[in-house]
Design a protein around this nucleic acid. Structure first.
Lengths: 242, 242
DNA sequence: AAGTGGTCTAGACCACCGC
DNA sequence: CGGTGGTCTAGACCACTTC
């Protein structure tokens, strides 16, 4: 039984019902009952059925064919579209146990580049946190985070608590980010920290994270070991169209 | 005037109207008229207004705050969520002129890895196309594409026409893909082709592309010059939730 | 308390697919 | 042609923010 009585919205109940129907008795590319049939099955209006289906289609669990029907997606397509995650969340979702070692916490004046990324005036105060990030106790990445000074003053940072949780507690809710993924080669210092030979391949991910209003909250540069980390995602054609 | 009389759906007309309103007279974080007001302005029902707003919010142009209003997003957040693009489309959107040089076209028996990626039986026939990809005449990437033999027999391939167009003409509509982005280091052959020193950093993007039903159509491995190419995208938190 | 977006109903017509 | 998903209407109540 997948009944979840704690759900608040009807479309969530319907979505759960469809999920159960798929795992119980449907194969990839099988047709779902029509939207009108699902209305009667769940005793809801068509819009509610469609809201549930839209949700599941976003996840790649279903796909629609206009004029024909709604079908079950293929199992190898369940990989989800990329979303904004902290290192901690990312590692947990990959089945690793995350941890970290603080390399540096300091208050600095923003460089012109950092200032423009965080939309601060040049030379404004910011907090810089550099950490070695580990997965299952093994070095995975080196992360350098810059925060505007008033977002998280250096003296308030608690190394034992997830950064995103600390930010949330102070009223800064990260919502959106722009990321850039580049290839890099490890220098002597980084390769030593990560425990690989100098000159090894690495993945560098730069991120500017903002709240809903577009106010920059975090600029992070993370250097991942190329031999242990890759970035995976599902993409579709005609993103907004359809 | 942004009036587009050729639009088919009402929500597209409303969306165009909101777009014009933003560029004409609104600043980031300004509030939009309420949904009820927009109903009257455009003479449509509320659901139509909401469909238009949802569209624009997906693009990052707007954001909603429950109980408060709908607001204009920040201009630096207009970068869009990643979507499935061919090399040609990707380069054009970056403002480059794409071209390519065919290095190899052959019919091969799928290796066990390739076969499993394309969901073929091991040793099945497939078409392999290896091309040097250029942007503005300069080497940018080396792309190796594998297609199931019945999707595009080797003798039907036309090097002068975009691969995705050829596939579409044969009834294979690519819709979705899973991509993996990794760090790599160029070997002697690749670095020569790309015109950079051996040992340079590179970005490797592996892609399995399928149609709506999840049927694999293409497996592509592309090695990009690390000094000229980076992968950029916008991500949000709580992808499906909200 | 008033106004906002979020969910939901019970209908309707249209565009498209397959027989 | 009937059945399907896509769009749309004109209402309603709820959850939340703001004052």
């Amino acid at each position: 039984m997948t009944v979840d009585s704690a759900r608040r919205h009807k479309y969530e109940i319907v979505a759960a019902g469809i999920r159960a129907m798929i795992t119980d008795s449907l194969q990839p590319n099988d047709a779902l009952p029509s939207e009108r049939e699902l209305m009667e099955i769940h005793g809801v209006s068509r819009m509610t059925v469609r809201a549930a289906i839209a949700r599941l289609a976003d996840e790649g669990l279903l796909y629609n064919v206009h004029g024909s029907g709604t079908y079950v997606g293929s199992p190898n397509l369940f990989a989800k579209a990329p979303k904004l995650t902290s290192f901690t969340e990312d590692m947990v979702s990959r089945g690793h146990v995350p941890s970290s070692r603080v390399l540096e916490i300091s208050r600095t004046d923003a460089s012109s580049k950092t200032a423009s990324r965080l939309r601060l005036s040049p030379g404004a105060e910011c907090t810089r946190i550099r950490r070695l990030r580990l997965a299952d106790g093994n070095p995975m990445a080196i992360e350098t985070v810059y925060l505007p000074g008033d977002v998280l003053p250096i003296e308030d940072f608690d190394a034992r608590v997830s950064l995103y949780v600390q930010l949330s507690e102070r009223g800064y809710e990260i919502y959106r980010a722009e990321q850039e993924i580049q290839a890099a080669i490890l220098d002597a210092e980084s390769s030593t920290l990560l425990g690989v030979p100098a000159g090894s391949a690495a993945l560098e991910i730069d991120r500017i994270a903002t709240d809903r209003r577009g106010l920059p909250i975090e600029y992070a540069r993370t250097i991942y070991r190329g031999d242990r980390y890759s970035f995976q995602m599902a993409v579709t054609r005609e993103s907004g169209d359809k």
